[in-house]
C-alpha cells in the first residue's frame, strides 16, 4: 500500500534534514498515528507522500508506484487517491457545503465538468454529496453555507470531501489541533472507523498520545526527523 523506505528531506543547502532515514509501511485498512513534538517532521512526511515536498533520498511507493518519478497528469492521478485533511482552515468559505464536498471529485472531473457542476449540479452528484455527508454524520448540512459551520462540522465536511475522492489512503495533518478534546476524540474515532470500514490506509499526525494509543493500530513517534 504505502511503503516509505530510507526517506530523507532537506530544506535548502546546509539545513539539518527535516526527515532522516524514515522507513514505514502502512497496509490497506490500517490506522497509523504519527506523534512527536512540533518541528519533528510530521507534516513534511505527510506532504512528501503526495509529492508536495520533494525527497532528497530514499523512496516512497504508493500502490507500487514510485512518487518521485511522477509528474503532471500522473502526479495529479496519484493525488486523487491520497486524500489530505488539514486543520480546519482548508475549506472555501464562500462556497456551499455541497460544493466543498464535491471539490473532492475535481481530480477525476474534466475542467468543463467542474465548471458545469458549479452552475448546474446533477441529481447523481447531489446524491453522492449527501451519501458522503451521511457517512460523517451531518446529512442535514447539505445546503448550508460553509462559514455557518462549527469547527467540528468543518472537519466532518473535510472528511466527506476526502471520501468523495474515492481514495486508497487518507493523510490527516493534525486534524483536531484546533478542536476541544471531546470533539477531537469524536473526529479521530470517525476517521478510524471510516478507514477500517472502507479498507483505507490512514496516516494521521496527532499531539494527543492518549487518543493515538486508544484508537490506532500503531503509533509511530518522530523526533528530529527520525523514527524514535
Amino acid at each position: 500500500m504505502i511503503e516509505i523506505s530510507g526517506v530523507r528531506v532537506v530544506y535548502g543547502p546546509g539545513a539539518p534534514p527535516a526527515l532522516d532515514d524514515v522507513t514505514l509501511q502502512i497496509a490497506a485498512g490500517e490506522c497509523v498515528a504519527l506523534v512527536g513534538p512540533s518541528g519533528s517532521g510530521k507534516t513534511t512526511l505527510l506532504r512528501s507522500l503526495n509529492g508536495t515536498v520533494a525527497i532528497a533520498g530514499g523512496s516512497i511507493h504508493v500502490d507500487n508506484v514510485e512518487v518521485a518519478q511522477l509528474r503532471g497528469r500522473a502526479l495529479r492521478r496519484l493525488r486523487t487517491r491520497l486524500a489530505m485533511i488539514a486543520q480546519q482552515h482548508d475549506l472555501v468559505d464562500r462556497l456551499t457545503v455541497v460544493q466543498n464536498v464535491m471539490a473532492g471529485a475535481l481530480g477525476r472531473w474534466s475542467t468543463p465538468h467542474a465548471l458545469r457542476f458549479l452552475i448546474a449540479p446533477t441529481a447523481a452528484e447531489l446524491a453522492e454529496a449527501r451519501a458522503a455527508l451521511t457517512a460523517v454524520g451531518i446529512p442535514e448540512k447539505l445546503r448550508s453555507r460553509t462559514n455557518e459551520l462549527s469547527g467540528g462540522q468543518r472537519q466532518r465536511v473535510a472528511i466527506a470531501r476526502a471520501l468523495v475522492q474515492h481514495p486508497t489512503a487518507i493523510l490527516a495533518d493534525e486534524p483536531i489541533a484546533s478542536l476541544d478534546p471531546e470533539l477531537g476524540e469524536q473526529i479521530v474515532r470517525l476517521l478510524c472507523d471510516l478507514a477500517r470500514e472502507r479498507n483505507l490506509a490512514l496516516l494521521c499526525s496527532l499531539h494527543q498520545v492518549e487518543f493515538a494509543r486508544r484508537y490506532f493500530d500503531r503509533v509511530v513517534a518522530l523526533v528530529g526527523g527520525r523514527v524514535a
Binding site: 503526495n50 508536495t52 502526479l75 495529479r76 492521478r77 496519484l78 493525488r79 486523487t80 491520497l82 486524500a83 489530505m84 488539514a86 482548508d90 475549506l91 472555501v92 471539490a103 473532492g104 471529485a105 475535481l106 481530480g107 477525476r108 475542467t111 467542474a114 473535510a158 470531501r161 475522492q165
Partner: peptide, 8 residues
C-alpha cells in the same frame, strides 16, 4: 487542499 485532490 484543492490542489491536493489532484484538481486541474
Amino acid at each position: 487542499a484543492l490542489a491536493a485532490t489532484g484538481a486541474r
